[in-house]
Simulated assay, not measured.
Amino acid sequence: MSDVPQQAQQDIDAHALHEQVQYKNFSDLAGKVVFITGGASGIGRAMAEAFAVNGARLALLDINAGLLEKAQAELQATYPGIEVTTCVASITDEVAVENAVADVQALFGRIDVLLNNAGISMNKPTLELAPADWRRAIDINLNGAFYCAQSVGRRMVAQGSGVILNTASMYGTVAAPERAAYCASKAAVVMLTKVLAVEWAPSGLRVNALAPGYVQTALTDELVRTGRMDYDALIKRTPARRLGKTHEVATLALFLASDSAAYINGQAIVADGGWSTYSYI
């Protein structure tokens, strides 16, 4: 098995991200208030960087206070004058979510974009999947996404505008063995996205889902390290012959949150290097 190279800055290829967004194609995002769950690391951290480059005001929510503090300090050092606030909370706690959203609303006066990104993996044979594991995947990946969307959605409907991007997965659109809880929870996020899109569109909101394939993060590194993911087989199975990068998902989020995507609503946008298109034998 090949080694997966460790990323220098906790899952974020900052140089590649700057190459993608330094020219600021998304100037309409400047000044927008962007609420990011799971914003302290991985894809959420890359999203924070991408929106910071484009002049957004950021609210990062995560359960890890230490990583949140680190992310805030790094963003403020890299982009002097940027507004970044943080909220330590679990998205499975609907009261904590409501309190965090209310605090951000009070601070900034509005919320323009919700990047509903926090989630976990669950990769176990179905006959060995404990009820607690099933409940944990559903509670974080689905219930947490709902609590955040509902709380932020109330504010967006009242203000008559907003964009919500739910992080689903390619495994919310295709099946795989040993991922019953994960596939079920992410498929539910895709359908939740569609329901909210058609329900809230008349109020000026757009709701879409990001459906990434395998992206190199600390999570995938851990799956490889513990033998729960075969890196060589994964690369061979992926037509692009590589894993995705966090900045690639972040720049997709930039586009979908921007006015350039103003007529895209209720869609699950798959970014998986061709994985779900390829009928592999």
Score class of each variant (00 low, 15 high):
M156G: 05
E94F: 12
R135V: 02
K194P: 01
G244T: 09
D139R: 11
K32M: 06
T246D: 07
F35I: 07
D232S: 10
L114S: 06
A71P: 04
I82S: 06
A181Y: 03
V53R: 07
E49M: 03
A201Y: 08
Q216R: 15
F108R: 14
R241N: 12
S276H: 08
L210H: 10
T85N: 02
V34N: 07
V101F: 06
E222Y: 11
L252V: 04
V84K: 10
T277E: 11
S151F: 00
G55T: 00
I43A: 04
G266Y: 01
G160F: 07
G273M: 05
A233M: 05
A48S: 11
I82K: 04
E19M: 11
K32I: 01
V215I: 15
H15K: 13
M170I: 10
V33S: 04
A8K: 14
R225I: 00
P131Q: 13
I269E: 07
T173V: 13
V157S: 01
D3E: 14
T193N: 06
F255I: 04
S90K: 13
M122C: 15
A65G: 01
S27T: 14
M229D: 02
A240D: 08
L107A: 11
S2C: 00
T126L: 14
F255A: 01
R242T: 10
A8H: 02
A240L: 12
D62C: 03
T37W: 07
A102P: 01
A130V: 07
I269M: 15
S151G: 02
A89H: 07
N141I: 05
V224E: 09
I235T: 11
Q10A: 11
L60R: 12
V53N: 09
L107G: 06
C87Q: 15
Y147A: 11
T86F: 05
D13A: 10
I63Q: 12
E98Y: 04
Q7I: 10
V34S: 03
L127Q: 14
A271R: 06
R155P: 00
I264G: 06
D13I: 03
K236Y: 07
